[in-house]
Simulated scan of single mutants.
Amino acid sequence: MKENRRDRDDEGRARNARPRDGLGRPLPYGAAGVERQPEGVLRTPEQTVREAQRLLDAGKPFHAHEVFEDAWKSGPDDERALWRGMAQLAVGLTHAARGNTAGGARLLLRGAGGIAAYRRPHGIDVARLMEWARELAGRLDGPVDAADEAPRLM
């Protein structure tokens, strides 16, 4: 009988427990991977920014995206676009580091557009992030080093 490899939570929703590398790519079961970010963590906005910056600096933009996604899903309605845009910036950097230049550029630009309506929420330097995203998107021609390209959020 074929073994079922689909991971499910208690409610039956799909959860992928496969190990992942530092850029979030799935590895074979049993391989040593990078510890994943726990899902559904409630953080203050300041904790979110601090944890995401730590992960970006470590070259783990996929993991930073998960931190922003928690804020997007649990934060106030008037900040959903901010956190979604921040998650898109992190995913854009993830794709760029994986060598998906078209997808990376598209997500960087989408993320920049998503945060454009905000001035300086929670100390986030929106203007600088938008400039960073547009500049990186404009020069992608192959994989980038995620840690070297990590933006400063504040």
Rank of each mutant, 00 (worst) to 15 (best):
M1F: 06
K2H: 09
E3W: 05
R5P: 02
R5I: 09
R6M: 07
D7L: 03
D10N: 05
D10G: 10
E11S: 12
G12V: 07
R13H: 06
A14I: 10
R15V: 15
R15Y: 02
R15C: 07
A17N: 13
R18T: 00
R18W: 04
P19F: 02
R20C: 08
D21P: 05
D21W: 10
D21L: 02
G22R: 12
G24R: 11
R25N: 13
P28Y: 00
P28V: 05
Y29N: 03
Y29P: 07
A31S: 15
A32K: 14
A32E: 14
G33K: 00
G33N: 07
V34D: 04
E35K: 06
R36A: 10
R36Y: 00
Q37V: 15
P38D: 02
G40A: 08
G40W: 01
V41D: 00
P45W: 06
P45H: 10
E46Y: 05
T48L: 08
T48C: 11
V49W: 04
R50Q: 15
E51D: 14
A52T: 13
R54E: 14
R54L: 13
L56S: 03
L56N: 06
D57F: 01
G59S: 15
K60N: 12
P61K: 05
F62M: 08
E69S: 11
A71S: 14
A71R: 05
K73R: 15
G75D: 09
D77Q: 11
D78I: 05
R80Y: 03
A81L: 13
A81Y: 04
L82V: 10
W83V: 09
R84S: 01
R84P: 01
G85D: 08
M86S: 13
A87M: 07
L89N: 11
L89V: 08
L89K: 07
L89A: 02
A90G: 11
A90Q: 12
V91S: 00
V91P: 00
V91E: 04
G92S: 07
G92T: 06
L93E: 12
A96P: 03
R98M: 01
R98V: 09
N100H: 10
N100S: 03
A102T: 14
R106F: 08
L107Q: 04
L108F: 04
R110C: 01
R110T: 10
G111T: 11
I115A: 01
A117D: 15
R119S: 12
R119V: 04
P121F: 13
H122D: 06
H122P: 08
G123T: 09
G123D: 01
I124E: 04
D125N: 13
A127M: 04
L129E: 03
L129K: 02
E131A: 14
W132I: 10
W132L: 01
A133I: 12
R134K: 09
R134N: 12
L136V: 15
L136A: 04
A137P: 11
A137M: 09
G138I: 11
G138K: 08
D141P: 04
G142H: 09
V144S: 03
D145G: 06
A146F: 08
A147Q: 08
D148H: 15
E149G: 02
E149D: 08
A150L: 14
P151Y: 06
P151W: 05
R152M: 03
R152C: 05
L153K: 04
M154F: 10
